[in-house]
Design a protein around this nucleic acid. Structure first.
Lengths: 254, 254
DNA sequence: AAGTGGTCTAGACCACTAT
DNA sequence: TAGTGGTCTAGACCACTTT
């Protein structure tokens, strides 16, 4: 019944570079953040929003979709769209942050510290879905930032002479190359797991910190176009150099 | 020039419950995963996709948007849409996993172990943007799963008698309540940080593990509708009970 | 029955890139 | 200039919920 007052900024400016859907999403976000609509409140119906802001139904739908995806509202068919209470579960941490931190630093380097052919033990064989005893390539790398080792990478690669995967891996000498672009050589998807660990002797000495310092361990398995695993390994990241941040609620990104 | 062969499944079935845009996104995902389109390849233009699958431009656009958001393709205005190589930076870890693990367990409980009024020291005052020496509420909680302590929560709350925030906090006795729904009482947004830590004596004994075991530390600051911080705290999560997994590439979720 | 969100159409116009 | 993606319209029809 009560229509919230609309300030000057709560209008869509067609002369702007910013698309209408971005503007409207921002308007609704701001209103929710300011408490105009509170958790549990129902938003105006899509028809009302169309009339209020002078946009077409498709544009309003797009906005609602965006807000729903970011966890700010929830839309129920036949009932309406409602503001969601803050939910920690909506928080997402992006590995990209880690890359940013490294990439924005000019002085990053990848140093190959070992690469040799070994026979797969039971665990490696299981992870790579190959027969025990088969030959695999074992690679160890250290990542430096300003001459300081910050990340330690170990990886087992299925050895297939027909594929240039291993050769390509040897040429990885940049941060960028290690985190991206590996797909060009036949990788299609990957499973990642992140957990908290304490560094063992070997890891700690390589990373030049005390043993039993904290670290993130990011385990990865990469698959080729036949969905067969071809790479299994871990990134060990010094906790003092890496953390992840995010924002939830109406003020959140995207 | 060369048109990829279309299998029987690579058609949109209008009789299905699954919307056309979901079907088309799945088709393109599968083709990319199978290597029909490889990293760097250009997808058919939107017009071609419309004709090929008999859908309207808006539907194709929606599909492209979805694939672009999940990092599988990148669209460039004026140039085309291209398959992206696998990029670790695309990986996102969702805190919801943590909630799922706890919530799906029937036997979870939250136990309040301390709640008292203290005066804000320099750090608390800075984090909550209040004057040093002001009174704040200090709360400590333990979260149990099958009678085993798995998470330890400490929190400082701005004490404002006009607001029911503190009272509401005391009533939190379930997992669900702790992670959700706190927004009903005037919280609007939050900043979260996750890092790897080793447990200190006190934390370890409360969580009944050895000291210097690994753990996740999730720090949080929650804001009210005036964007003023009202809560600062941490969740300490035993690493042996929590890890996060995700999938990147053409086979990824959403 | 009325109101809600969910999908989809068949175009339009614009901005940008390549040639 | 031709081709590409990006935005947007003004409806349509459907599924669902509430009254």
């Amino acid at each position: 019944m009560k229509v919230p007052d609309r300030r000057e900024t709560d209008r869509i400016d067609r002369g702007l570079y910013e698309p209408a859907y971005v503007q409207l999403a921002g308007i609704l976000r701001r209103q929710i953040a300011a408490g105009v609509y509170r958790p549990g409140d129902q938003l105006p119906s899509e028809g009302q929003l169309c009339a209020q802001y002078g946009v077409s139904p498709m544009t309003v739908r797009r906005v609602i979709n965006i807000l729903a995806e970011s966890g700010v509202v929830a839309a129920f068919q036949g009932r309406g769209t409602f503001v969601k209470p803050l939910d920690l579960g909506e928080a997402t941490f992006r590995l990209e942050e880690l890359k940013d931190r490294l990439a924005n630093h000019d002085d990053t380097a990848v140093r190959l510290i070992e690469a040799r052919i070994v026979t797969a033990d039971e665990k490696v064989a299981r992870k790579l879905a190959i027969a025990e005893g088969r030959r695999v390539v074992y690679i160890r790398r250290l990542l430096f930032q300003d001459e300081i080792p910050v990340m330690y990478h170990r990886e087992y690669l299925v050895y297939d002479p027909r594929r240039p995967l291993v050769e390509a891996e040897f040429e990885v000498t940049t941060m960028e190359g290690l985190l991206k672009g590996r797909g060009s050589e036949g990788l299609q998807a990957g499973d990642l797991t992140i957990e908290a660990v304490v560094l063992r002797e070997e890891e700690a000495s390589l990373l030049r910190v005390e043993a039993s310092s904290p670290a993130f361990c990011i385990e990865h398995i990469f698959y080729d176009f036949d969905a067969h695993p071809v790479s299994w390994g871990w990134f060990i990241c010094r906790a003092d150099r890496f953390k992840f941040t995010t924002r939830i609620g109406a003020g959140a990104r995207r």
